[in-house]
């Protein structure tokens, strides 16, 4: 009689152990899956289009700034006439980052004095090729750059 009781409680305990451990394991499987289903805060993955943390009004006419675009610098500037433009900012000579020169309204590389015009065309100094033009759009307040 006594063995039957212990046998019974042993079985109950085993069933409990089996249930909880399998249940906990299942939870440990489901937790990552549920977390996975919730999309991250960051914007969607895309190399061809990037929304910048820059307001269109932040860029005054005849000035520019460097912004990252898929790990590479891009020069975003407003021409003296007020048009927003974006060009790859990597100098085609030795890959330095170029800058906008307000006093001459051109794009200049400080490393070896390469000069580009606001269309990205190399006009003076060692750069062998023009900079690549990118599309710029203003969506609401934000500026969006896209591969042309």
């Amino acid at each position: 009689m006594e063995t039957a009781t212990t046998e019974y409680s042993r079985r109950r305990w085993l069933t409990f152990l089996l249930g909880t451990s399998l249940g906990a394991t299942l939870v440990s499987f489901l937790y990552p899956v549920l977390r996975y289903l919730v999309p991250p805060e960051t914007s969607e993955p895309s190399l061809s289009e990037v929304e910048l943390d820059v307001k269109a009004s932040d860029i005054a006419p005849n000035s520019g700034r460097i912004v990252p675009f898929s790990g590479k610098p891009v020069i975003l500037f407003r021409t003296a006439a007020g048009e927003l433009r974006a060009l790859t900012a990597t100098c085609t000579h030795l890959a330095c980052t170029v800058q906008y020169r307000g006093d001459r309204s051109d794009i200049w590389c400080a490393c070896h004095n390469g000069v580009y015009d606001t269309n990205g065309t190399n006009i003076s100094g060692p750069p062998p090729r023009p900079l690549t033009r990118l599309d710029v759009a203003v969506r609401g307040e934000k500026i969006v750059i896209r591969r042309a």
Binding site: P32, V33, R35, Y36, V38, P39, P40, T42, P45
Partner: peptide, 9 residues
């Protein structure tokens, strides 16, 4: 890199 546990899946 970005999705939580995406690397795991």
């Amino acid at each position: 890199a970005e999705v939580p546990f995406g690397w795991l899946i």
